[in-house]
Design a binder for these strands. Structure first.
Lengths: 236, 236
DNA sequence: TGACAATGACTGACCAGTCAGTCATAATGA
DNA sequence: TCATTATGACTGACTGGTCAGTCATTGTCA
């Protein structure tokens, strides 16, 4: 019921921990040293980070229902009980994980440096997305949301509010900019910003399911897609 | 191990079954009456169909791991043991379900009447797809494949072989036709047929996750998408 | 009546969540 | 500075419940 209100981990110095095992400086008064990483709070934060990392891995590999917390604990190098010091239960753990995993995406997405043409902006954005999401484990998180969303309305809601609606709003603005400047012919595109990102979504899914059957050059595909919207690309 | 090879259910008269409980006519010779459905084979087929139907429902709602066969049995109006007369175990049941659920899709997809322009053909095809898949439970099956695919390589493989590669091949052919006839400007599109279907995939996902937040007119979206490919549509 | 289909109580493995006990670290005081 | 006490993070054996799969019994058709 009552959620623990640990603050999220700030520092994450992993290697130093082992190095400092032998002796712990007894600076009783000053909490001025964030680096050496050996006091209680920091260790706890590190463990939490390890749990989060391990849980992410397991959830991605097996889905929510099939993931065993015993396995998560083992992977994190921690006893099962420890998990419950950081999370109330499996379900809220899952939800919290998805939430925190998504947040950094928003940061990257919303910052859209307005330099250059609309096409350039979108191209840059798409390259970032493909590089940071499609080709990494974050893509799996998106797949995870698609997979578990219907069973976790809270997650679907959160994702819609924080990512989808904002992202689409930003893209709509970009499209309108492009229409105004004459770069984009098709005015109707602004009504369906989903069309612009659709290839990226498909790339994520393809990556998870079919990459080993037929690899897909997401960047190149997206360029062709942009050619459809902006007209033939000049040969680079 | 050994798969049972019952043929798929043909007749499905559900209400009549209950109505006919009291007395069963003894027409031993003539199998000319498909409706009353009371001999052994037919009853068995009906039960199997009920199980398949119920299992589909449960798997879509909960995913593979979280689905209880007790619930499937209850929903199908059957004892749990009966399920094991038709399927070896939960896993092979799931795989077989997905396979048989997908087959009808192929039928609908491959039949592409070549009348009219390429755009018309694609438009007709898309309308069918959206009507038959996006707006129905078959869309959920696609989502289910996305969700469970990584854990069931056999399913991902099957799906790629039987649906994705064939579908994309057909679409590639259509695109090349369009390029040859001058309807499609962008030759490169043939390299990424995924681009043509991407909006449909996105529509499926949107439907499952976000429809209640923001309904999406898939048909209209697809038309705008085709306008990008074929040029502005003439006002109907 | 014989053959086969259907049943559902039962088994055993599995797993989320608990909690009494341990021990490294922090606090206190002399 | 060192000894003593207090703290609370961490552990992992344990519990209660769940559920896939089985099989002896019962029902039904030909």
């Amino acid at each position: 019921m009552t959620k623990r209100t640990k603050r999220s981990p700030r520092s994450s110095s992993e290697t130093t921990t082992r190095a400092a095992t032998a002796r712990v400086p007894k600076v009783a008064s000053a909490p001025l040293r964030p680096k050496p990483a050996a006091n209680r709070a920091e260790k706890s934060a590190e463990r939490r980070a390890a749990i989060v990392e391990a849980a992410m891995e397991e959830f991605i590999a097996r889905g929510f229902a099939a993931t065993r917390l015993d396995d998560v604990a083992k992977r994190a190098g921690v006893a099962k009980g420890t998990i419950y010091l950081h999370f109330t239960d499996k379900e809220s753990m899952f939800e919290e994980l998805i939430r925190t995993a998504i947040v950094p995406l928003i940061g990257n997405i919303t910052m859209a440096p307005p330099g250059g043409s609309v096409r350039e902006t979108i191209e840059r954005f798409a390259a970032t997305f493909i590089h940071e999401v499609v080709s990494t484990r974050r893509g799996d998180i998106i797949r995870l949301i698609v997979a578990e969303g219907p069973r976790f309305p809270a997650i679907a809601d959160f994702y819609f509010r924080e990512v989808v609606s904002r992202g689409l709003a930003g893209i709509t603005a970009l499209i309108q900019l492009g229409v105004a400047s004459g770069e984009i012919r098709q005015k109707e595109l602004a009504r369906f910003p989903q069309l612009l990102v659709a290839p990226a979504i498909v790339a994520v899914i393809w990556q998870s399911l079919f990459a080993r059957h037929a690899p897909l050059d997401a960047i190149e595909m997206f360029k062709v897609h942009l050619d459809l919207i902006f007209g033939e690309r000049r040969t680079t």
